[in-house]
Simulated assay, not measured.
Amino acid sequence: MKEVYITRISKFLPNKPVDNDQMEEKLGKIGGKTSKARRIVLRNNKIKTRYYAIDENGQVTHNNAQLTKEAVENLCDSNFTTKDIQLLSCGTSSPDQILPSHTSMVHGFLKNGNMEINSPSGACCSGMNALKFGFLSIKTGQVENAVCAGSERTSSWMRADVFEDEVEQLSALEDSPILAFNKDFLRWMLSDGAGAVLLESEPKGSTPLKVEWMEGYSYAHEIEACMYAGADKLEDGNLKPWSEFPAKEWGKISLFAMKQDTRLLGENILVKGVDSLKLAFEKNNIGPEDVDYYLPHISSYYFKENLYDELKLQGVEIPWDKWFLNLESVGNVGAASIYVMLEELVASGKLKKGDRILLHVPESARFSYTYAYLTVC
């Protein structure tokens, strides 16, 4: 088996940062009314700025595949061009279409020649699953290099016009229609952007990071879906997919909007997250003392203190001085968040040879968790 190193890392965050007062102007007011949930959600998540692929005139500037293409090109220079990529592996929760696959579309924009591609589906863990496919492909000698990426373009799923048909239906039934909290909640949580890494079998570059191991865990056998799109949740907890609804119903219930069951989120996301972290620690014979930088992807600062408390409760407390977060300034970029976080840590100049970095990525879709353990070379 070969060793695997992250030798380059990049990000692409579109346009100018959007502050809290600009959000509703960018995304639009549903039914012409200001959201009642917005201030509550923003107060809890403590995100101050985020990025949208929407310009000053409200026009879309990039689709998801274009965001990813920009991040991939930001990895490259005259010494390593897009034509040198042997494997492209890209994860996202918000693909531009059902088919072709997300990575196929990214490859189409790159126009860089024939190569292998991989498109893992899912939510936040899809970016890490993209990384793991590249990691294993190099480790087994299938390829000599791999570009892996995570990206989101969720602003297009959150714009007011997505919910217009549903609000019209509600207006016919009641005087003051209010969009359900499980849909409105996510409008104030998510951000657009992309991140990418180059994996190689040699420790090249100014700050190469050796990928020691990656682990993944799913609790779908225990817990029903929490975050979903393209489906409606039934009373028994099962999802009814879009393909089983008449087309005329899709808009009436905002079927393709992202939705989240916040009750399930609060009950499970941290408990299972720490449980799976313990499994990863035990399998690889390490503990909190073997971590110098802890990068947990959290969707909201609401979870920060509670995550620390859960780590402590389950006996794997990680001191605050080891934590590295950038949620406040870049927002929750889903599958791209861990790439953007790692890029900022590397660019900070804080890392020194021998430092050990733990990446911890949850996804609430049906409670999956993915980990990577890196060493600075």
Results as ranks from 00 to 15, higher is better:
residue 45 N to L: 00
residue 161 D to P: 05
residue 194 A to D: 02
residue 320 W to K: 15
residue 101 S to I: 08
residue 279 L to T: 14
residue 374 L to M: 01
residue 205 G to K: 03
residue 149 A to S: 11
residue 279 L to P: 10
residue 184 D to I: 00
residue 34 T to D: 11
residue 144 E to Y: 13
residue 17 P to I: 11
residue 8 R to H: 01
residue 90 C to T: 14
residue 193 G to T: 01
residue 7 T to F: 04
residue 375 T to R: 13
residue 57 N to S: 14
residue 344 E to C: 05
residue 153 R to W: 02
residue 236 D to W: 00
residue 282 E to A: 14
residue 207 T to L: 05
residue 313 L to C: 10
residue 172 A to V: 15
residue 179 L to S: 01
residue 204 K to P: 07
residue 176 S to F: 14
residue 334 G to H: 04
residue 41 V to I: 01
residue 312 K to H: 10
residue 161 D to Y: 10
residue 67 L to K: 06
residue 217 Y to N: 00
residue 70 E to Y: 13
residue 191 S to I: 09
residue 54 I to D: 06
residue 111 K to A: 10
residue 62 H to Y: 12
residue 87 L to Y: 12
residue 288 P to D: 13
residue 360 H to S: 14
residue 232 D to P: 09
residue 299 S to D: 04
residue 356 R to V: 02
residue 26 K to M: 13
residue 199 L to E: 02
residue 191 S to E: 06
residue 47 I to L: 08
residue 275 D to P: 10
residue 276 S to Y: 03
residue 90 C to N: 13
residue 327 L to S: 03
residue 257 A to F: 04
residue 154 T to P: 15
residue 212 E to D: 12
residue 235 E to A: 15
residue 15 N to L: 11
residue 276 S to T: 05
residue 199 L to G: 03
residue 256 F to K: 13
residue 67 L to F: 04
residue 42 L to D: 02
residue 55 D to Y: 08
residue 202 E to P: 12
residue 53 A to W: 10
residue 250 W to H: 11
residue 243 S to T: 14
residue 335 A to V: 10
residue 354 G to H: 02
residue 326 N to V: 15
residue 106 V to A: 07
residue 165 D to P: 12
residue 293 Y to T: 03
residue 213 W to H: 05
residue 56 E to D: 11
residue 228 Y to A: 00
residue 271 V to F: 07
residue 343 E to D: 05
residue 92 T to N: 05
residue 42 L to H: 02
residue 182 N to D: 08
residue 95 P to Q: 05
residue 206 S to V: 12
residue 201 S to F: 10
residue 231 A to H: 06
residue 221 H to W: 07
residue 363 E to Y: 00
residue 332 N to W: 03
residue 281 F to N: 09
residue 151 S to L: 09
residue 24 E to Y: 02
residue 45 N to C: 01
residue 175 D to M: 14
residue 350 K to E: 06
residue 297 H to W: 11
residue 269 I to S: 00
residue 43 R to H: 12
residue 175 D to K: 15
residue 227 M to T: 12
residue 251 G to D: 03
residue 114 N to Y: 15
residue 79 N to V: 05
residue 187 R to V: 00
residue 141 G to T: 12
residue 195 G to R: 06
residue 7 T to M: 05
residue 286 I to E: 08
residue 5 Y to A: 03
residue 34 T to L: 07
residue 49 T to N: 09
residue 264 L to P: 07
residue 178 I to K: 15
residue 339 Y to H: 04
residue 210 K to P: 09
residue 371 Y to V: 00
residue 194 A to W: 05
residue 29 K to T: 10
residue 89 S to L: 08
residue 310 E to G: 07
residue 24 E to S: 07
residue 27 L to T: 06
residue 89 S to M: 08
residue 125 C to H: 08
residue 257 A to L: 03
residue 43 R to C: 04
residue 210 K to M: 08
residue 185 F to G: 04
residue 160 A to H: 03
residue 103 T to P: 05
residue 102 H to K: 07
residue 137 S to K: 09
